[in-house]
Each structure stands twice: as C-alpha cells, then as structure tokens.
Simulated scan of single mutants.
Amino acid sequence: MKVVITGGGTGGHLSVARAFLEEFYKQGFECLFIGSINGQDKAYFESDSRLSKKFFLQTSGVVNQKGFKKLQSLWQQAKALQNAIGILRKEKQIDFVLSVGGYSAAPTAFGAVLLGIPLFIHEQNAQIGKLNRILKPYAKIFFSSYLHSSPSRYYPISQVFFTQARVRKNIKNLLFMGGSQGARAINNFALALAEDIKQKGLRIYHQCGKAEFTRVLQEYLNLNLKIGILKENIEFLEDIESQKIQIGILEDLDNVDVVLFGFSMQMPEIFKKCDFAICRAGASSLWELCANGLPALFVPYPYAAGNHQYYNAKFLEEKGLGFLCLEQDLFCEVLWDSLALLKEDKITQISQDLQKECSVQALKQMSNCIVAKLKSRNL
C-alpha cells in the first residue's frame, strides 16, 4: 500500500505521525509525508529514511491568529492546498491519506477529499480541533481515544515508550516538562522549588525549551546547584562556563542536582529515570506518560485552542490517575500536596493503572481497521 501521512506543526501531532509511520513501515507500506516548513515538521522527518518522499509546504496556524495575520495564514493555506493537490495527483496510486491534525494537515487533508482519496483521521485531544470538526464527516474512520464511536480508543504511541516503562514505587526524580517549546510558567515553578527539592534529597530533570535554556541555566547556577547538561544540548551553552556544569550522556549524570535540556530525542529514557512529572497536558505527552507508567501533575496551557489541554488532563484526573492544576493556581504547595498523596501503595497502583490505559497493539489495531475499511468499501 502507498500512504501519505500529513499533519504536525507541534511535537504532539508529530509524535503521532511518527508512531503511525513506525507501524506502516513495519507492515511494508510505502510512506510519504506532507507537512510544513514551519513548526518542527522538518526536525522530525526531513532525515527519516523510512519515508520514500517528504514535502514541506508554506503553512502556519490559523485558529489563534487575528486580523492581517489570519488573512495571511488563510492565503498560505490556499496556496498550499494547490501544491498538495499537485503532489497527490503526481504521486499515483495513493491508497489513503492519514491525517494527524494540526495546521500542517489542512492542505493535504482537504486535497484528499477533493480528489476522492480515502481520508483517515486521528484526533489527539478530548476537544476536537476545528480542522477535524470540518473534516470528520468526510473521514472513512475518525480515531479518538475519547469517543465511543472510535473503532480503537487506545492512543497511538511509539513502541519505545512501552519498552522503557516501569512501575513506580517511590519518588526520587522529578521531571519538569513544558513540551518541546518549553513553558515559562513550569520553568519558573521548577526554579522556585529547586532548593527545597535538593534539601528533600530529590533530583530534577528539566526540559526547559530552547528559547529559555540560557536563562534557566543561569538561574540554576545562581542557586549554587550542580547542573548536568545532555551532550546533545551542548550547542545551547554558548559562552557560559562553570565548574558546576557537567556535560555528558544521560547515564553519566546521576550525581548532579539538575539535569537540564532544551529538547531531547531521549524522552523515553528520561521518562524511565523519573518518578513523577510536572508538565503540560498535550495529548501525546499525556499518553506517552501513561504508557511509561509515570504519574503527573498536569498544568494545561491556558491558551490552547478550545482549552483542549484542560480536557485532556481532566480525562485522567476523573479516573484518579493524575493531578490537575490551572496555571494561575500553580504554587509550591501544590506539588508537595500532590506528592504527599502518593504513598508507596498509591503510586504503585496509579503507575500500574496508567499503563492499563494504553495498548502496545494500538497502532496495529488501527492499521488493521484502515485496511479492513478499504477492502470492505472496495475504495
């Protein structure tokens, strides 16, 4: 089969795209990717040898734009639609298009509908995004972990998050994570707690984002803490020199107070090191934490479209499998109160139950659903 995977812009959408690519490639499908030159699409897929072809179009987000910027984004999307249709026509015998959403997906997904190519959609969030609401009636299957109508309600997660999973029994290492772009509120929260965390004999693993790396590093150094920097982030150090900085691979940084990184391709291994996370509630991160058995305090990004991060986190909180705190209510006591509730038997139970919310067979199930649908409809 020949499949076009489209979507991205943010790490959450792209993680799902990569997970589907992993499964489709394993099944012998020829895979193409159509994304955007903006966002992180190129970082994820430009060098991926599993893709026979990659296309990156000029697109940007529309939903949160206003005035001239909104008109500019819509114009870009219209031009990209023309380009996407041209690509789909040129690439003959495409069996289906798989959209994972995000502004990168719009041109190719609409192009598939206009050309009569079967469209399958995966919606990551509890609140359906505007693009997917428009396209849902045209999708042959609409996958969602939150809708009872979905033929598979497990989230598509890369295999490595399962292989690195473990059941937590106590808390020694804390992960502060604002996503691939970082989150200033979570960064400041970690800095405010850093000295207390050290006094309690705990270690910090902190994904601060590339833009905030220098500031956060300097703040930690001002606190007289010993910092470990992942070797893959050495380019962010610039002219900063300090005897309190240790540079190395993940396994070499077990003797520092803080392991700091702007972005890392070793997130499954970092998850395995940690016992509790303080993070945003983007869907992919949330479900990857579940697969890994890592309990979390979720701090939803307050400006996410449709407030979808709040509803993602609420889904787990209502099951007793996570903690939820609005950014405006994020004070130091929130962390200590959450950890106080996680006695050994409680954290073990939550860690085990989180893993039950995921399935290592999810991607295979979804792929089988797609193939069966294509055969049954003789599309």
Rank of each mutant, 00 (worst) to 15 (best):
V299L: 10
L374A: 11
P295F: 15
L175P: 02
V62W: 02
A78G: 11
Q127L: 06
A19E: 12
G282V: 13
Y25T: 10
N132R: 01
K198L: 02
L32Q: 01
K136W: 02
Y205A: 03
G9S: 07
F110Q: 03
K364H: 04
A281E: 02
A19L: 06
K79W: 06
L88P: 04
I278Q: 09
N307M: 05
A78M: 12
P107E: 06
G201N: 14
D95T: 14
L260P: 06
V360K: 07
S15M: 04
Y205K: 08
Y301P: 00
S149E: 10
V4L: 12
L221W: 11
F110Y: 13
E219I: 04
E30F: 10
Q65F: 04
T10P: 00
L88T: 08
K169L: 13
N132T: 01
L81Y: 13
A296H: 01
F56W: 05
G86K: 10
Y25I: 15
P118F: 11
R377M: 14
G7Y: 04
S36Y: 07
H308A: 03
I240W: 11
S150E: 09
K356G: 09
Q181V: 04
Q207D: 03
K69Y: 05
I240Q: 02
M265T: 13
R203N: 13
A296W: 09
S99K: 11
V113S: 00
E212P: 02
R153C: 03
L379E: 04
I229E: 14
F331M: 04
K172I: 03
Q352M: 13
S351H: 00
S284T: 03
N38A: 11
V258S: 10
S47V: 07
Q352C: 07
M1W: 05
L335Y: 08
G129M: 04
I197Q: 10
E212Y: 06
G116N: 08
I370E: 05
E317P: 00
D239S: 03
P156H: 04
K346A: 12
V16F: 00
D353V: 02
F142R: 01
Y310W: 15
G129H: 06
Q349P: 01
T6R: 00
L51A: 08
W336P: 08
T163D: 15
E195A: 01
N38D: 07
E327D: 09
A17F: 08
F236W: 03
D239K: 09
M1H: 13
S104V: 01
M1T: 15
E238P: 06
I234T: 08
N83T: 14
